[in-house]
Amino acid sequence: MMTWTCSLLVSLSLLVVLITTDTNAALVNVALGKPASMPSIRGLTWTADLGNDGNADDNFFNNHCFQTDTEMSPWWQVDLQDVYYISQVNITNRRDCCTDRAANVEISVATDSPSNWTVVAFQEGQMGLFKSFTFDTVTARYIRVTLRNEESIFHLCEVEVFGEITPVDDCADSPCLNGGVCTDGINSYTCQCTQGFYGNNCGQALVNVALGKPASMPSIRGLTWTADLGNDGNADDNFFNNHCFQTDTEMSPWWQVDLQDVYYISQVNITNRKDCCTDRAANVEISVAKDVPSNWTVVAYQEGEMGLFKSFTFDTAEARYVRVTLRDKQTIFHLCEVEIYGYKLKSA
């Protein structure tokens, strides 16, 4: 008779699982095989991972159940490894002995870290051989099962956490602005900004941080076409309107600007002279230095002629000094405007 009663109870438990799963056809057990933990282990065999191994065998000695040592408010928890929408937790208890130990069962969840817990379900008193906890849908990465205010050994044979198979999409609300591309993370997102924008949500526009800053070059051809004309804010490409700089004939001639502070830069726009001699601007190299104008790092290079205009984009670099060089060319060097786009982080 006892055997028949246990078999009937197990059959009813399985029936509840099947009905629940079928009723919530879109839900799956998102805890299956995920990393599990508990505060202690009684013996070496009954480890935390047995609580969500997919085997609900409720005979403890078949080694599909976890067991803690004696604890005050003992717990077992699982890291779902992403944030899911969950609304149901099914628990299979041990049946061969000590079923009454599973009492005052509390289900709590956390989204950001396994510390800021929110209780979503509670069963006062003994839970019996099987319990299906259902609750309003919540977002959660961590699930914890606790015997609230109980000083006891804690053992269960299976914990199933039912949620949507698709985790929470942190990009669903399109947080990236100005055409930025959103990448979903674990309760977070990152934005890949389009050219000209920056910030966590790409909401801030890059500015020309070179405008009016001190500029220099190795020589000047004539007295008119000085280095400061390369970043005066006027991109008039007619050389004789006096908004272009010009060096004398040099080997690898260069022009550089001191931004007067360290900026994060990712784009340099160059306007060439168009009325004559456009082909002189060839093998254009962009290099940056953070500390002193000598430890240069090349961030962009255009082999051959650059044409009338070139926008160089590159991975964001920290720079105070920016230099434009005609690599391995012996020539006069002239350009009509150099714009350097970047930003400076606000002080904490």
Rank of each mutant, 00 (worst) to 15 (best):
N234M: 02
C277V: 12
C244H: 13
D261I: 01
H243E: 15
F245Q: 03
T278S: 10
N242T: 14
R221W: 13
E285L: 07
V292S: 14
V292N: 08
S252T: 10
Q260F: 11
L259H: 06
E250F: 00
D291F: 01
Q204N: 15
S219F: 10
W255E: 08
S294V: 12
Q246S: 15
K274L: 07
L259E: 07
I220T: 05
N234V: 00
W255K: 14
C244I: 12
V207G: 07
P214T: 12
F240G: 08
P293C: 10
A215G: 14
Y264L: 05
D275F: 00
C277M: 11
K290V: 00
F239N: 04
V209A: 01
G203T: 14
A281D: 05
L259Y: 08
M251V: 03
A282M: 08
V257K: 01
D237A: 04
V262K: 03
L223M: 09
Y264K: 05
Q204K: 03
A281L: 14
L229H: 11
V288F: 03
Q267D: 05
F240Y: 09
D261E: 06
H243M: 08
D261V: 00
R273K: 09
R280Q: 06
V299F: 07
T249P: 11
S216T: 12
T224M: 13
Q256K: 10
N295P: 15
V268I: 12
Q204E: 05
K213C: 04
A289G: 05
F240I: 12
Q204P: 01
C276S: 07
S216R: 11
V288T: 04
A205M: 08
V257D: 02
T249L: 08
N283Y: 01
V299G: 01
K274Q: 05
V284E: 12
A227Q: 13
N238W: 05
W296L: 07
V207T: 15
G233L: 00
E285T: 10
K213Y: 15
D261A: 02
N269W: 04
R280N: 13
W254F: 11
V299D: 04
N283S: 05
C244F: 04
A282S: 14
V288M: 01
Q267M: 11
V209F: 05
V292E: 09
D258Q: 05
W255G: 02
G233A: 01
V207S: 10
T226L: 02
N208E: 07
Q256T: 04
A235P: 07
I265L: 04
D275Q: 13
Y264I: 06
H243Q: 11
A205D: 00
T226Y: 04
N283T: 10
S287E: 01
N238F: 08
T297L: 04
A235R: 00
P293D: 06
F240L: 11
C276L: 02
Y263D: 00
E285R: 13
A281C: 13
D261L: 02
F245E: 10
G233K: 05
Y263T: 08
V298E: 14
W296S: 06
G212Q: 03
S266D: 12
M217G: 10
G222P: 12
L206M: 14
D291T: 00
N208D: 09
C276R: 12
